[in-house]
Design a protein around this nucleic acid. Structure first.
Length: 431
RNA sequence: UCCGCGGUAGCUCAAUUGGUAGAGCGCUCGGCUGUUAACCGAAUGGUUGGAGGUUCGAGUCCUCCCCGCGGAGCCA
């Protein structure tokens, strides 16, 4: 007899199988009992008739939700069952039976209640498929970089300096010295790229901004890449390939989960099928003004502007050539117009906003020193970073991709807090 | 930090002009042979976020505070 996982149940129709899992829900009709089991890979309905086994029926009828158990039975194809097959239950071994009702009911709850019970919420409903998609997205990103010859590396989490100087950092006491949690691994990846050529990592980033939107967490995961000998154009081409690769791979691998999430994958596939437009910041401003938005050259895009640009193109769109004063000190200026930088944000469609920010980096010591001065940044903490331009500097570029926003877009969920097991937000450090 | 909305039973929400605090769900008990958040019946369940004030009387009105949600700013 096979011990199986529920996602492979259809392959064992006709067999007697065992599933290790939990009782998700049950419905009783007096002489027939429907038991929904979950095991992390999916949910399957078990059926038990009182006439077949009165002792087991009475015992199972009393089990509360989230009882951990091992269930054995014969799999049968049945179109009435969710998932296409169901289990004729023959034996149940209870591992642990809760003595209190499971707090998460299978009905509406407020976000606050659910977040307070996040450790239990993740067992239910949409949360399991979302987290399974998250796994697939991480794996697809790693697969893409591996196939392209990138070396997986790491950047430190504990840092002595800010990367960009502007964003608020989480301070940490480091043996009496002031340290911070990293807000980005970029400067370190620039150093690593000079050692290994093309590098990437997926790591956490921390921002102490008091953001309260559906697109922000204080702790979030970024996929960052840095490539020696890449210019701005090659950088964008790589980002486009990455996004198309990940979406395509995840739609293929996690079609069942995306269906459970009621995500229209045909829309998703179409959005990444053709070339992503590249629009200058100046042209994007003009598009927004034509659409009636009150925005001027030099203004940052707000959420409504990003959504409008996404709607305008109906697919991911690069906004490039931003005014230099809107962006950090390390970005390279355009050869034909020093007032703009060779940077681009990738805006996702359907209102999901910016999912990638990247740029070609300053590659001469002279320019870097000048731009540090222009931003009123002290040279001392950046001494090692300046060294990268002192010893064999080359043109190079890179980007950071917000994993949660990417996952939210792929899943079609409106708030990125559902895309990470334990979201950290302002006022939320537990569980 | 700013703007808006909210806090009533374990959960989700009602409560007219200020006049006896209620329903559904959950848990428990009973019924029901194809249920899909099953359904039907019964029972259980309250310091109305906190402090102060107005009033014969406050869930309701006033002041302050706490907490949450949505958005803005900032960013990925």
């Amino acid at each position: 007899m096979a011990v199986i996982t529920i996602d492979h149940a259809a392959e064992f129709v006709g067999d007697e199988v065992t599933v290790n899992g939990w009782l998700y829900n049950k419905r009783s009709s007096g002489k027939i009992l429907f038991l929904e089991f979950r095991d992390g890979t999916g949910v399957i309905q078990g059926v038990l008739a009182r006439a077949d086994n009165p002792e087991l029926f009475a015992r199972a009828d009393r089990l509360p939700r989230e009882t951990s158990l091992t269930v054995t039975g014969r799999l049968r194809a049945d179109r009435r069952a969710p998932g296409g097959c169901e289990l004729d239950v023959e034996r149940i071994e209870v591992i642990q039976e809760p003595t209190e009702p499971f707090p998460i009911e299978l009905k509406e709850h407020t976000p606050n209640f659910l977040l307070d019970h996040r450790h239990l919420w993740i067992r239910t409903g949409r949360q399991v498929p979302i987290l399974r998609v998250r796994d697939a997205v991480f794996r697809a990103v790693r697969g893409f970089f591996y196939e392209r010859g990138f070396v997986a590396t790491e950047a430190p989490i504990l840092t002595g300096t800010s990367v960009e100087g502007t964003t608020t950092l989480f301070p940490v006491d480091y043996f009496g010295e002031q340290a911070y949690l990293s807000q980005s691994g970029q400067l370190y990846l620039e150093a690593t790229a000079m050692a290994l050529g093309k590098v990437y990592w997926i790591g956490p980033a921390f921002r102490a901004e008091k953001s309260k939107t559906r697109k922000h967490l204080t702790e979030f995961w970024m996929a960052e890449a840095e490539m020696a000998f890449y210019d701005h154009g090659a950088n964008l081409a790589l980002q486009e390939d990455l996004v198309r690769y990940v979406v395509t791979a995840v739609v293929d691998e996690r079609s069942r989960e995306l269906e459970q999430l009621k995500r229209d994958t045909a829309v998703l596939v179409e959005e990444v099928r053709t070339t992503f437009p590249r629009v200058s910041y100046a042209d994007a401003i003009a598009i927004l003004q034509d659409a009636g938005h009150d925005i001027q050259y030099g203004d940052d895009f707000g959420a409504p502007h990003e959504a409008a640009l996404g709607d305008h193109f109906g697919k991911p769109v690069f906004i490039e050539r931003f005014p230099a004063n809107m962006k950090p000190f390390y970005m390279k200026r355009a050869h034909d117009d020093p007032s703009v930088v060779l940077a681009a944000d990738l805006i996702a469609p359907e209102g999901y906003g910016e999912i990638i920010g990247g740029s070609q980096r300053v590659d001469t010591l002279e320019d870097l020193e000048r731009q540090l001065a222009e931003y009123n940044l002290p040279a001392e903490p950046y001494k090692w970073y300046l060294d990268l331009r002192r010893y064999g500097a080359v043109p190079h570029a890179g980007f950071g991709m917000g994993m949660a926003r990417l996952i939210a877009w792929i899943c079609g969920v409106s708030h990125i807090r559902e895309t990470i097991p334990f979201p950290r937000q302002i006022n939320r450090l537990y569980p």
